[in-house]
Amino acid sequence: MLRLATALAALMLIAAPAWAQQPAPAKPTVILVHGAFAESAGWNGVISRLRAKGYPVIAAAVPLRSLKGDAAYVGALVSAEPGPVVLVGHSYGGEVISVAGAGHPNVKALVFVDGLAPEVGESAASLGARFPTATLAQALAPPVVLPDGSADIYISPAKYHDQFAADVPTAEAALMAATQRPIVKSALEEPAAALSWRSVPSWFVWGSRDLNIPPALHAFMAKRAHAREAVEVPGGSHVVMISHPDLVAAMIERAAQPGQ
């Protein structure tokens, strides 16, 4: 009886179609890139949801010293991955992923979360000047002058909640204000030297009450990039990955699907 069962099992294996014998393809690695006035832990809600679905995730700790340098850092992470990668950028991190994705054929998708997608020659500052309705400048603390003469900028802790994270609980926003990573002012003025959103499929999501980057600018960039999806979250602030992690994680999953 045992021999018969073994023989039947072997026969079923031989008769099974070839596709049924192939291992499931590995899921792409998701690299999450924070922006200015934030840090990598801001992705925690999205990370937990992606990991539960089996996605490898890296939340990069971006230096925020220069667009060129930040993009080179993220590009090195991409180069270290043997398989496909989905790049996800928040705010200034959108600029970083767009530049970093250029020249990396394993980048299969870009997801901009309240993120900037500049054309070559554009900067965060120049895009903001074209859509001058944000209130970030009024919310900044006095700059911290560094030994080399450059200046770090922060959002004033007293204004952080209303400016940056109005749809996040007050206590959580207070922690975010205390742990915010500053950016060198010149990085926001540095023009993008490359881009990848013209050749790599893109997805955009932003809050309708984003006070750092105007919703009209988000819509303009998404249309210009011929985004696969462009979603405006009603009442969402500049940090929809924190206030709406389910929605953002689901978009990243869609971007990661084969054939996109």
Rank of each mutant, 00 (worst) to 15 (best):
D152V: 00
L11A: 15
G42F: 08
I242C: 01
A125Y: 06
I155D: 01
A187T: 08
P201S: 03
A26Y: 03
A151D: 02
K159P: 07
F220G: 00
K185F: 12
R254A: 14
S208T: 15
Q21T: 13
A193R: 05
V99H: 08
A227I: 04
A173K: 03
L211V: 06
A26E: 14
F164L: 14
G75P: 14
E81I: 15
P28Q: 04
F112W: 09
T6R: 12
F204S: 03
G69Y: 07
V248N: 10
G101F: 09
W43A: 11
V111F: 11
A166G: 09
V240S: 12
G94Q: 11
L217F: 10
R228L: 11
A61R: 15
A100G: 04
V239H: 05
G149K: 04
A61K: 14
G83D: 11
A225C: 08
V168N: 02
G115Y: 03
H218M: 07
P245H: 06
G83P: 10
G235T: 12
F204K: 09
A139E: 05
L217C: 07
I58N: 03
G89I: 15
G259D: 05
E189H: 15
P132V: 06
H34M: 12
G42C: 09
L211W: 01
L211N: 15
P182S: 14
G54K: 06
R3T: 00
F220E: 12
S66Q: 01
L32S: 07
W206G: 05
L4K: 10
F37L: 14
A171L: 13
Q21I: 13
E95N: 14
M221H: 00
F204Q: 08
S66W: 00
M1Y: 00
A117N: 09
A219F: 01
T133L: 05
V168I: 15
M221V: 11
A216P: 02
D148F: 07
R49S: 10
G128D: 13
L188H: 02
G89R: 13
I58G: 04
S243L: 12
V113C: 02
Y154D: 08
K53P: 00
L140D: 01
A225T: 11
N212I: 15
S208R: 05
N106G: 10
S186E: 13
E119T: 13
A250H: 01
A71L: 06
T6G: 14
E39C: 03
W203T: 02
V57M: 00
G235D: 13
L13F: 13
P157I: 04
P169F: 03
I31V: 12
G45H: 05
L4D: 03
A151N: 04
A9V: 07
V78P: 02
